[in-house]
Nucleic acid binder design. Structure first.
Lengths: 195, 195
DNA sequence: TTTTAGCTTGAGCAATCGCTCAAAATCAAC
DNA sequence: GTTGATTTTGAGCGATTGCTCAAGCTAAAA
């Protein structure tokens, strides 16, 4: 059975994901990637097919990771909304200086790929849609738990959450406004409850 | 005094701005630009110095244009909030299919330039800050006119507006959700008045 | 009409891009 | 130890990148 692959696909994809998230697809060269994941072109292209293929896998992994992170916050919280609140604070405040970017990689992707028929544009839409479904399920729970009244549907709450969360992350992608984050996140969740 | 320049700087910058806005800085090649603005490399580099120089001028022009557009809506409206409301609806709904991108060029720029010391990153921050000052002045007016109570400062209203507006534009940068735009914009302005 | 300062042109440079593939290295099976 | 299927390596290909500059062109000044 000959030789075995020497790299761990998971950790390689994670490293690539970090670099793509930070620099974007077009600004990341294959040589940047080679260094970041410590693989030579031949191995990369045999494993992922193309730069696009590696990016594709990276973005999917990013979505999974984000869901896993939310799950982790939910399991340590007394309610869905408290879990989401802790997650949002963690992303915007605590990981501000150690994250590849303040802006969600899905949002960056959706912003970068303009050509409506391109593979990566479609991918970014699909991942965003998938995440919206996930969020909707969470708000369904929140409604069933009585945390929220049902003046809005779960999907509408999910949409509102996404707009607020993306808006805030974009706003805090700059230096010297960190002290504003906490109150604005507080305001966001007050609004959700009062909708 | 020898020969005269044959291009109109304003319209050239506007054309470049459209292309940069659509494709982003890194995905736009100088040959794309040559075709779009109908100039040869020598002329471009003598007039703008570099691709970065042309982008820089394009982004500044974009900010000016956006302000001018808001001014135009304000002069046709009975109040600041009505003017802003019409502007937001125009940007998100009416120009959805004829605009280079659903996402604000300033936001795209802020998302694309990751390296904290790069010129274009600094530029995107400065332009965003400048726009926030402008918005704050508008909300100052709105407060003075009695359109808003002063439970928040003008700056806080401006921040809230930016978060909502960017969040919404990001959300509507995808097909088949157009019918949601109107009610969500309505909701945004209801929230502003109730803050 | 001639001069000449300055704009325009576009061939093409050096660097970098995404990617290929023949050769070397590796390790399970025998 | 030998074999042989499979992975890893990295020199380097053709294409494209941002950009330069000598030559040509244009029009105001003389």
């Amino acid at each position: 059975m000959a030789n075995k692959i020497k790299f761990e696909r998971e950790s390689v994809v994670r490293l690539a994901s970090q670099l793509f998230w930070q620099k974007g697809f077009h600004a990341t060269s294959t040589r940047d990637l080679q260094e970041a994941i410590n693989m030579r072109p031949g191995s990369i292209y045999s494993a992922f097919g193309s730069k696009e293929g590696l990016y594709s896998e990276s973005l999917k992994d990013y979505t999974l990771q984000m869901k896993a992170q939310i799950e982790s916050f939910l399991s340590n919280a007394d309610s869905v909304l408290e879990g989401l609140h802790a997650f949002v604070e963690h992303v915007i405040i605590e990981t501000k200086d150690c994250s590849p970017s303040a802006i969600c990689m899905l949002v960056k992707a959706n912003s970068e790929f303009a050509e409506k028929d391109a593979n990566l544009y479609e991918l970014s839409l699909n991942q965003a849609a998938e995440f919206e479904v996930y969020l909707t399920q969470l708000f369904e729970q929140a409604i069933n738990n009585g945390e929220l009244n049902s003046s809005l549907t779960a999907l509408e709450y999910a949409r509102f959450f996404q707009v607020q969360f993306t808006g805030l992350r974009g706003y805090f992608n700059r230096p010297d406004v960190t002290q504003l984050a906490q109150p604005m996140i507080e305001q966001m969740f007050l609004l959700i409850k009062k909708l």
